[in-house]
Simulated assay, not measured.
Amino acid sequence: MPSRHPEHRVPVAINVQHWRNLTFLHWPIEAARLQALIPPALVVDTFEGTAWVSITPFRMQYFGAPEGAFALVPDFTEVNVRTYVHGVDGHDGVWFFSLECSRLPVTVLLRQLGLPYQRSTTDQRERGGAVQYTSRRRAGHGWFGAEVEAGERIEHPSPLENFLTGRWNGYGRTRGRIWRTPIEHEPWPLHTARARCDPAALFAANALPHPHTSPVVHFSPLVHVRIGMPRPV
């Protein structure tokens, strides 16, 4: 299980977030196809030779000042499209193709930090033991929908599950440079899950090849996240 190893700690947080009802939807993708879509300062990470793309919807229950002092915006649903990378700085992390978000202040602020936030109408609802996510971009195509049912708690994650969830940095590009933002949170409380979803439009909106397999699915009910200061790579 990913843990709070000292190298993953964020001593001084500039932002605190609480991620509720987060689902990992993972598809295997040929690494060379992804490498052409990311900056040359980053290298696509693989597990046993296979790269992965994830759509990760969740409820941002808190987005605000450290120590829970005050929220900057009301809670909202976010839907991320991402892959896993190594940077020339020796760290591994996440490269985002898009982050769909319904809160304009969050979209504007984090685009300034090099993260490709897209203004979207997003929602999450709990019905009959399932979590339903929807997202639709305000401009252009990019609709996404999923219904997820969580299963049993995973007590001992496999090497693949650790690879797909144990990431502690986010990379972005702004002002002509790549920046790395460190992230800290408690170990994921991972659950098995099954999902019905339609990723095609969101993959196409990010110039990603259409997935031809069912996703590998995991669910996490809640983690508390500390975001550190971005650093140039």
Rank of each mutant, 00 (worst) to 15 (best):
Q35T: 14
M1T: 03
P232E: 13
D75K: 05
M1A: 11
Q118N: 02
G128A: 08
L72C: 01
R127T: 14
A146C: 06
D89N: 15
H18R: 01
G64D: 02
F163L: 11
E184D: 09
L160G: 12
R111P: 02
V223Y: 01
G172R: 12
F96P: 02
P159I: 07
P11A: 12
T83L: 10
Y133T: 05
P116L: 01
H26W: 06
P66A: 14
D45H: 10
I183M: 08
F219L: 02
M229E: 08
Q17W: 02
G176M: 13
H141W: 02
C101K: 01
N21F: 04
G140K: 03
A65Y: 09
V131M: 14
R136G: 10
G140V: 02
T121L: 12
G49Q: 13
L208Y: 08
R226F: 03
V81P: 01
V131S: 14
L113F: 15
C101Q: 01
F97L: 11
P6F: 08
F70E: 10
T46A: 13
R4M: 14
A31K: 15
V223D: 01
R173K: 13
H18K: 05
L190V: 08
P159E: 07
L109A: 12
A201I: 05
Y171H: 03
A71H: 00
T50L: 10
W143M: 05
L222E: 04
R33F: 06
L190C: 09
L113H: 10
G64T: 00
S54G: 07
P209I: 06
F70R: 08
A41E: 15
